[in-house]
Each structure stands twice: as structure tokens, then as C-alpha cells.
Design a protein around this nucleic acid. Sequence first.
DNA 1: TATGTCAATTGACACGGTGTCAAGCAACAA
DNA 2: TTGTTGCTTGACACCGTGTCAATTGACATA
Lengths: 206, 206
Amino acid sequence: MMSSVSPPTRERLLQAVLTLLEGSQGRGVRMTDIARQAGITRQALYLHFSTRAELLVAATHYLDEVKGSEARLAPSRAAGSGAERLDAFIEAWGAYIPEIHGIAKALLAMKDTDREAARAWDARMQDMREGCEAAIEALDRDKMLSSALSPKQAADMLWTLLSVRNWEQLTRDCGWSQAAYIETLKALARRIFVAGGKPDRQDHGH
Amino acid sequence: MMSSVSPPTRERLLQAVLTLLEGSQGRGVRMTDIARQAGITRQALYLHFSTRAELLVAATHYLDEVKGSEARLAPSRAAGSGAERLDAFIEAWGAYIPEIHGIAKALLAMKDTDREAARAWDARMQDMREGCEAAIEALDRDKMLSSALSPKQAADMLWTLLSVRNWEQLTRDCGWSQAAYIETLKALARRIFVAGGKPDRQDHGH
DNA sequence: TATGTCAATTGACACGGTGTCAAGCAACAA
DNA sequence: TTGTTGCTTGACACCGTGTCAATTGACATA
């Protein structure tokens, strides 16, 4: 019954997906390509995953396992003040995006046609949203959340601001470096969400 | 030679695209569907547009013509101060998004596979970017651009902030009303881009 | 009335990509 | 020897896009 415990091949397939997706940012990676990359036949691939969507979803989970998505966002929970927490979260998530970008794009592309892919993606985004909510909540507890925004609005906004698409646009279309992305977004988030937050610092040089 | 002057059928096809895309937000609208909606055969459709991408691109131009995309963004150029201009631009663009959303999604979905579609979309986004740049520039001229951001950074950020994807996320996934979207983004943009801009107004209630 | 042209029709087919199925084969275990 | 497991080969169905050839009906023109 297809060996519920996982032998090499399944792993090799998952790896293949990740490798190919990394290279061709989610674009035009066919079942044939994946199978060949893993050293088996396209048909044999269906012995392990009955659907492209299923494979992609599994690859997503696999990647989480390997890269430890949970562990990544943890440091932000440890931070002291709400503002520090916000910073830490943006830093962690911002560093994570490039690693999941390939598969994220692939999943995103299937979202409109495949229910399972949509569910997998939405679940992921829900996780990430919880991080946003937690950061905003911490800020709110500190009475440091900008009074211009309700916690819900703020969470929505932060969540949107940190979307993969936005990272893609800033980083690809606008040519921002990864470091610039993180720094600018941290500064921006402070300005937006932290009460009275650095309205316009002119500290160095009068 | 396909009659360079446009008889009814071509228009009907364009209309059909818009209608169908409106209904099914860019999802699964096939050539067959479009042809049927216009009352002709799928094959006959190829007498007018030789490619799905071409049809979609033409539909985009057609929509511009009908809804006057140029005229929409014009008022923002007339505004007095840079801040007012920013407001006007967000309002105009924000009101425009829902109208182009269907076709935007369809184009966006093809972007990765079709060069023409990508070009059409990028051109559109370039137009919109010019609006962003103009608004930021006006702000800069007024010496009201936040010193935390360079004009280029600011334009990149505004452009990203106002993306169709973000509108979609806030409006669909977060459940914001169209009015809330516009109001919140206007406030946000002021806070982000306008120097010293409304850091945290506590006006109503002590 | 005959001729031509134009828009559309019907029906068939190619291609690429996903998913399915049947038969066979090599390796290993009992 | 028999069976099982994991894979192979080869064929095929389905779907959506794009192509082609032959035909038809309407309209204009000579």
C-alpha cells in the first residue's frame, strides 16, 4: 500500500520539486521535469503523489520541516517590547520569504484552479497572519499601537504589507536588495504602527 | 485583411470578455465561453484575435477607452499641494481598481507564460507608477516628503502599496469595504509619505 | 442572373500537459 | 518457486489552445 513510512524516492521527489522551483521561480515546472530530476518516470511519480497539487502541497510541508518555519518566527515571540517584537518578526519573515518564494509562486499560481493548493496556501498565510496579530497585540498591550488604527486594521495592514507579492515587487521590479527590503520595511512598520513612532527623524546633523 | 475599421462582432467579443471576467474574477474563462457569450463560434473568434493573450490585451485597451483610464488619474494632477495630490491620486486609482480587477487578474495570471500579456500588464503598471512618481515628486517639491525616504523609495513603496493584489487582499481576504480601503490607504499614505504627517491624532476624546 | 467577397459555420486535427491503465521486469524475501 | 515491491514502457483519455479546409448564406456589383 505504497509504504506509509517514507523511503528515499518520495524524499527525492520532494527535493526535486524544491530544486526546480528554486531555479525557475514557480514557472513551467512540469511533472515530467520533476520526475526526471528525481531519476524516475513521470508515471512512477503518480505512484507517490496522485496529483500535481498534492505534490506541491507535500513539498511545502517538507520545506517547512527542513527549514523549520515554526522555529523561524519564534524569536519574535521572545522580544521584549512590542516594537522590538515587530522588528524581530519582520526580520524573521523577511529572511524567510526568499527561501519559500519558489514554491510560494507555484502554489499561488494554482490557487485559482485547485482547491487543495488554495487551502495549503491559505493555511500558510494564516500562520503568518498570526505572527502579525501577535506583534500588533504586543504593541497594543504596550499602549504603543498607533491610535489611528484598530488592532484589526493594523494586523490586516501589516499582513498585507509583508505579502510575498510585495516582497517580489520591491525586490524584483524595484530592484531593492534583500537587506534594503528588510530595513525599509522595518522602518516603515515602525512609522505606521508604533504610536508617535519616528515621525521623521532628523537626528544626525542639524 | 480582417477589416481594420471595427464592425460589431469585434466589439461584442471585447464586451464578452469584460462581462465574463467581471463575473468570474479572471478565473477559468475559456475561448469557447467568450465566443458563445458573443454569439459566435470559438473558431470564428480566431478570425478576430489570433491568440487568447491578444484578445485579453485588446480587451484591456477597450476597457481603457470605455472607462477612460487617462481621464481618471487626471484630477490628481490638478490638485494644489503635494498632500492633496496624493489623496486625489489614491482616491482615483482606488476607485478604478474594482473596475479593472477582472481583466487585471486574467492578465496577471498569463503574465508568467505569455510575453505579450506581460508587456500589456507592465505597461499598465508603468502608467500607474508614473502617477505615484508624480505625487511623490509634488510632495518633494513642497518639501513635505518624509525625510526617512528618498523619492525613489517613496515611489516604489506607494506603487507597491497600491497594487491590485493588495487591494484584493484587503478587500477580499480582510473584508474591507471599498470606502474603508480608500480612507485607510489615504490616511496611511499621509502617515508614511508626508513629513511629520499626522503622527497620531488623538483629536476626538481626551 | 451570374460572380465575387465576406463573415461565419462545421468538423477534423495537432500540440502540450495532466492523469490513468495494463503489462512487464528486476530485486528481494519467504 | 512464488509473491511482493518499485519501477519501466507504451498507450490512451481529457482539456484547452490554436489551425485548417470545405461549406454556406448574405450582400454587393456587373
